[in-house]
Design a protein around this nucleic acid. Structure first.
Lengths: 134, 134
DNA sequence: GCTACAAGCTGTAGTCGCTACAGCTTCAAG
DNA sequence: CTTGAAGCTGTAGCGACTACAGCTTGTAGC
């Protein structure tokens, strides 16, 4: 029924056209059938799958993990535990990244606070950046 | 006095050898003098400068911003306000990134909580990933 | 002085996840 | 039937490294 050209698929999933073609090239999504003239024609299954990839990307999953997830789903014999495993691992990765960034944030904030921001050439930020850590 | 070969510089700054050569190639650090046989020999000035770059990278500054910062310092006529500007902008970038990641964190956490993790093949995480946002 | 072998050299290619062309062809509305 | 939007392939670029391969140099111990 719905035979979406790539532009419509892009509009409906929020995934860039170039990115869709890229995903196909690297095997993230299956190659769709083509029109007589060679243009890609997508259906609801492609839409669902691409939306899944998009959703995972928004949650920070790397492409190879998404591929693994899709393989699980495609296999049909996946267990909830396997999926939960991947999710928890990703959650931990996100938390680790946040922890890193929070250190950066505190340091930058302290540096900005130490600096009056005047037109004097002697800046405590530069001093801090040049200072040896540890 | 101190004529450090690249390996020692790497050890003292915590910057990978390959990365040091890369920084030189892209003009982040000046090319050092060479030994008779063509090997790089660094001094304290190089050490300080590389440590500065390292410190900025740890704080998440992109290389071109670090370059701008170094240009400011090299010019000698920088003002505290300019440096503070760059720092505050970087702080904002870090905070924006944290905000993004916290959304991911909450979503992943909710998904993991919704999932019992049993060996049943019907997984609420997969359902959530396939569900339309909005 | 000689011998090992650690350390350094250059240049190129790969990583991740896209994004941006150039130069062409096809589709679909009027 | 025309026209302009949309799609096609293939390649190259981004940022910030990292990892070779295949060679040369430096240096410590004898």
């Amino acid at each position: 029924m719905a035979a979406l050209p790539i532009g419509k698929l892009a509009a409906r999933t929020g995934v860039n056209i170039e990115t869709i073609r890229y995903y196909e090239r690297i095997g993230m999504i299956p190659p769709p059938p083509r029109s007589a003239g060679g243009q890609r024609r997508y259906d609801e299954i492609h839409l669902r799958r691409l939306a899944f990839v998009r959703r995972c990307r928004e949650l920070g999953f790397p492409l190879d993990q998404i591929r693994a997830l899709l393989d699980l789903v495609d296999g049909g014999d996946y267990t909830c535990a396997e999926v939960r495993e991947a999710t928890v691992r990703q959650l931990e990765a996100v938390r680790a990244r946040i922890a890193d960034l929070r250190i950066m944030e505190r340091t930058l904030d302290a540096m900005a606070a130490a600096c009056a921001g005047g037109s004097v050439p002697d800046c405590p930020i530069i001093d801090a950046l040049f200072a040896d850590r540890r």
